[in-house]
Amino acid sequence: MLIKCPFCGDRPSEEFTYRGDARPKRPKAVETEVSDEWFDYVYLRDNVKGRMHEHWHHSGGCRAWLVLERDTASHEIFGVTTAPEYARKGKI
């Protein structure tokens, strides 16, 4: 797999560290009432078959956090953006 880093261009996937699904939002509160949210966030996964937004860290390159849209069944990559950009826009 080649990942097009916005800063470094096409780079092989082994330069990156994978984190997983980028869609779930870290719960804000720490009160016990939200423990369901935390449980969901930490342990449960949509485990998408098909197009997924996911975090990849260019740990062996410029060290930027990126968000990819990738098909988990075909490994096709449809788009890449930076994590801050994704947080602002909510899309790739």
Binding site: D21, T72, A73, H75
Partner: peptide
């Protein structure tokens, strides 16, 4: 990384 493709890299 997450995958449903029965082939690897």
């Amino acid at each position: 990384y997450n995958s449903y493709a029965r082939r690897g890299g």
